[in-house]
Amino acid sequence: MQTTNCPGGVSAGGAMRAGFILAILFFAAYYTYIAFAELNYLSSAGRLGPGFFPRIIGVSLVALCALSLYIDLKHLPAAEAVAPAWRSAAVLALLSGVFIALFEPLGGLASMIVFMAAALWILNPGRALQNALIAVLLPLGIYLVFQLWLNAAMPRGMFPLPF
């Protein structure tokens, strides 16, 4: 792993770490607010109600996140290791999102082929024939297994296939 040095400040990696726990803290605070504002501690029969457990969870989560944020900010490294291949992970995540967005409009098979072709073109460059074959045959195989053998739900899309 490579290290990013940020003399006198907090590294991008360190800020992201703090940002992640801050995001959890916001989630926890909102969860706790609903647990107290909308859910009753006792039911109409006088037993423990729907708000009892969420209040315990919410308060514990807020307290633990706040404590962790405090400790992490106190000991945040000025330089945090950043993996050199982070771009590949980001590209793959982006492609996954685009794939899901196209999944219903294009249909199962077509969107799988588009996704595989794009992913292999970026991640496995210089092997056009191999990539083309994999991008068509693998989705076709998965489609046949799920659609014909397992009879699973699969979006048909704008251009439904005859099989």
Partner: peptide, 28 residues
């Protein structure tokens, strides 16, 4: 190679999730 296996796993994860209830919300 992992660079081929990775996208293939994403296909199976997505199809697998969608096929449970046919729900795009669950896929997201």
């Amino acid at each position: 190679p992992y660079r081929i296996l990775g996208p293939a796993v994403i296909l199976i994860c997505t199809i697998g999730t969608y096929s449970v209830n046919g729900s795009i919300i669950e896929t997201w």
